[in-house]
């Protein structure tokens, strides 16, 4: 994993333990509870189903705009305390990459990308506005594939993309990323861990399934924090020596 990450800037890793299942159940329960409360407002709501089908077919509820975003924010807030600890434990690769003194982003990001939804983040990289010493754990709650995923450029391709952005401007950069980026296939139970400086783009989901992904950022406590500053992060894990050192007079 470390060799792959060092060469490409990303790696797809399988979870150890049942962390992704824990997160998915928490999401599912919170979502069912919220939707049942508002059941009368949501045509087509049919109650509890098996979770795979439920996540894939979420768009059957025809939630859009403000209604969908309010639900998403509610779910984000509900699962937020779980996300960092569960992902850090499930993917030891994170600790291998950034070391034992770890901070995580304060909130968490949940994306619900329904088929055909054109509202999506533009082609971008997270760093340098975020820290260059940061990784993103991109964790699907159902299988991510084809346009129900995202396109990521590796380290070498990112360099070409940024040269293109400098020389030719944003449209050429976006086109390069769309043509060159790999549509990552990440099955549920795995995660894509990628360096914050990698260029990535999000296509319109042209499958017939809704994509659910949790995005969470981790970095070393001691490494520079980027333009967003240290307030974006909160502590997650400190090594014994760091704990002693910070507590010493």
């Amino acid at each position: 994993m470390v060799d792959t990450f060092s060469e490409l800037g990303y790696a797809i890793v399988k979870a150890q333990g049942t962390g992704p299942w824990t997160l998915r159940e928490a999401l599912y329960d919170a979502c069912c509870e919220k939707l049942q409360e508002a059941d009368r407002h949501i045509p087509g709501y049919i109650g509890r189903r098996s979770t795979d089908e439920w996540f894939d077919n979420f768009h059957d509820r025809e939630l859009r705009g403000r209604e969908l975003n309010n639900l998403r924010l509610h779910l984000q807030k509900t699962i937020q305390p779980l996300v960092g600890p569960v992902l850090f434990d499930s993917f030891p690769a994170i600790g291998q990459l950034i070391g034992p003194d770890v901070v995580q982003q304060r909130g968490c990001n949940l994306v619900i990308a329904q088929p055909g939804d054109s509202e999506r983040a533009p082609t971008h990289r997270d760093a340098p506005l975020n820290s260059k010493f940061e990784v993103i754990c991109w964790t699907p709650m159902n299988d991510a594939h084809d346009t129900k995923s995202m396109r990521v450029l590796n380290l070498a391709q990112t360099k070409v993309a940024l040269d293109t952005l400098r020389a030719e401007g944003y449209p050429a950069y976006k086109e390069y990323a769309a043509e060159t980026g790999l549509a990552v296939e990440v099955p549920f139970g795995s995660a894509l861990i990628f360096w914050a400086g990698l260029v990535h783009s999000i296509p319109i989901n042209q499958t017939h399934e809704t994509r659910w992904t949790i995005h969470h950022r981790f970095k070393n406590f001691w490494a520079p924090y980027g333009e967003k500053g240290s307030g974006y992060f909160t502590g997650l894990h400190l090594s014994p020596v760091t704990q002693i050192g910070l507590g010493a007079a």
Partner: peptide, 16 residues
């Protein structure tokens, strides 16, 4: 949205 430092002043926004 937000620009990349290399897309300033309006590269991303213009595209959006």
């Amino acid at each position: 949205t937000c620009e990349d430092p290399l897309s300033l002043p309006y590269g991303v926004l213009e595209d959006q």
